[in-house]
Amino acid sequence: MRAITEFMANHHRCCDGLLVAVEQAVVSGAWERARTEFARFQDAMRHHFTAEESLLFPLFEQSTGMYRGPTQVMRGEHGQMRQLLAGVASALDARDGEDYAGSVETLLIMMQQHNIKEENVLYPMCDQHLADQVDALLPGLQSQIAGEERVPT
């Protein structure tokens, strides 16, 4: 019963792969390609955050009654990563290699420590508490991560 953990962790690895493409473009001096690859990475990250904030976290909160606990911390970290994503985008726009290297390093560590918390603690608890809703939940997460559904604003 690790369906949520495996699905979401797999998407974390997909995002890692997209970030690698940005890094490789920057190292080879292909700034335009780096911007294109970064836009793909940024989209994937935003869709991931949206899937969690609009679907997974509310269900977890309803199921456990914990509205101000770990999901709140994760939302806060999403906010910090959104700021870091904007910082990396500015560095790429300015073609500033040094600023890019520092911003992307910070983003990578922030992102990975966030992923560790989710994969080791939060997702396993989601698997435990949302076991009877997994069949309905996974297609919803899938379509939001693929960017097919927009959350009403």
């Binding site: 700021q83 040094e98 600023d99 290297a101 520092g102 910070t106 560590i109 922030m110």
Partner: peptide, 26 residues
């Protein structure tokens, strides 16, 4: 890795949502 990241993280937490702390390589 740990020390610069923790400095960044705690500065970022001090600054709040409208502030982006200097990146960890600084």
């Amino acid at each position: 890795k740990i020390v610069p990241f923790l400095v960044w993280l705690h500065l970022q937490n001090l600054g709040g949502v409208h502030f982006l702390a200097p990146n960890m390589n600084k």
